[in-house]
Amino acid sequence: MSLSPQDVERIAKLARIRVNGDEVMAYQSQLNNIFGLIEAMQAVDTAGIAPMSHAQDLFQRLRPDVVTEPNRRDAFQAVAPQTENGLYLVPKVIE
């Protein structure tokens, strides 16, 4: 398998990372090297094996439905790039 420049552009777009023309080529070659390493996986027959998502086969603990968190807006927004009237500001979103 090998990634095309279009694949690189598509995933960069999905990941919201701007890549310029030269970078596309560099990423393409590096990613293809890495996929060369990854492809070794395909040789193994894993039929019937349950995928392992977590390090332990345990079940989720549930939290009691109680309000525990105070308002810390000022502390949180002290590190925000742009706020006004308690809102985070971003470039205009068109729905």
């Binding site: 968190e69 308002n71 807006r73 949180f76 308690g86 985070y88």
Partner: peptide
């Protein structure tokens, strides 16, 4: 109709001042 959010202990009451019921999670 819970009191708190699905993954955090912040309140879900309607109509609060912006971002005052948005905890670190």
């Amino acid at each position: 109709t819970t009191q708190s959010k699905i993954f955090s202990g912040a309140s879900i009451a309607f109509g609060a001042e912006p971002n005052t019921q948005a905890c670190q999670v």
